[in-house]
Design a protein around this nucleic acid. Structure first.
Lengths: 212, 212
DNA sequence: TTAATATACGGAGGTCGCCTCCGTTTAGCA
DNA sequence: TGCTAAACGGAGGCGACCTCCGTATATTAA
């Protein structure tokens, strides 16, 4: 949560790779096998290192564990956040899928509750997920991370449905809700965290419900 | 999570300077004037540096701005959190006082709302406050920081009153509420932050209210 | 005033993590 | 089998953290 200046610097280096239009049909060389292999190794190592050492764990440790140079890590994942997102993409997928399933099967308010519970369950074991989601909420840039955008969209869908059915108040955006939810999840992971967090989220949802 | 070992080390290095038993009743020397002066300078510098550079700003910058050696900073404030707390003690005082005033004057639910609004207003300009409050919620230690303990107590008072009057649900602790509130305040400070945060907190309070 | 001494000062320096840069290696392709 | 784009890796510069200890000074006692 300290690295705001750094991020800005990097962001600007992103979409500039094509100064001139590249051969419209690039010959598209097959990606190198070692590159793919290293990327995979890095993801495995990162998942483990983050699980053990928390979100702030050393990236050099990740590279070391992966048996790879630090330069290679940075080539594959230019920022810590990029790595978070790649590591937790699977989890985000699951949650998005859950949201879609719930939207079709369940009454809207319970759908929201259940979705949040699912999120808590996941965060309980994959703490880094929050880190993958949070940075996009932290900057005021319009550039959203893919993960957060998808999560926010999932939340938005559930919310929207509730609003249309008159069950959920309409004066709050998906973005804000995600912010509150992440915030509530964010602090303190210890014994009893899961149960207490679920209770707090339920209370928040109570506040979202119309008709009192 | 990592700073615990260090602290312990520090503690034990204290009383070894005297090879022979010292006068059991220490004569209590007056604290040195330069010490007091430096402490004050550090607080002033820290307040400014944190305001400008955020919570993660360099402590060496603080020392530099204060015109003081880095060693002096660490002697006065052994941890970053200690410094936060000293810097924002005044703000915490204000909020505690506000809670007490509101408890006597206002209907309990509005009291809670107004208190939270006051908190948001304060955090809007003194971002570091959150950092002063958060660490105590983050560790699972029974050792609470003075600031958080007082805030939590203030929140507890308001809550308790609401519960007794049957206006607030009784299945949630002050600690949990503070956690949720800090979490909601935590992420993202930008244009419109204040208004949106207040709305989210109001929603949360709606969830706390009994009788729906 | 002065001497004694407890107390505080300051910053050099060891450690660590971040990130870049560039010489070297290697996989894919013809 | 060679050519070359692509990828590798790690040295090294930087900045921050924090400790340690020789030096300086405020306070107290004489």
């Amino acid at each position: 949560m300290v690295a705001e200046a750094k991020k800005a610097r990097k962001e600007s280096a992103q979409g500039v790779t094509n100064g001139k239009a590249p051969p419209p049909e690039s010959p598209v060389r097959k990606p190198r096998a070692d590159s793919l292999r290293n990327r995979e190794r890095l993801l495995v190592a990162a998942r483990q290192v983050f699980a053990a050492g928390g979100t702030g764990a050393s990236l050099e440790a990740v590279a070391r564990d992966a048996g790879v140079g630090i330069g290679t890590l940075y080539r594959h994942f230019p920022t810590r956040e990029a790595l978070f997102q790649a590591v937790y993409a699977r989890e985000v997928d699951e949650l998005v899928a859950l949201a879609e399933a719930l939207a079709e099967e369940v009454e809207p308010v319970s759908a929201i509750r259940r979705w949040l519970h699912g999120m808590v369950r996941m965060v309980a074991t994959k703490r880094g997920m929050l880190a993958a989601l949070e940075p996009a909420l932290e900057t005021s840039q319009p550039l959203f991370s893919a993960s957060s955008a998808r999560m926010q969209q999932a939340a938005g869908g559930l919310l929207q449905r509730g609003v249309e059915l008159g069950a959920i108040r309409d004066d709050v955006s998906a973005e804000d809700v995600m912010r509150a939810v992440l915030g509530i999840c964010y602090i303190r992971q210890d014994d009893g965290w899961q149960a207490r967090t679920i209770r707090l989220l339920d209370i928040f949802v109570d506040g979202l419900v119309v008709l009192r």
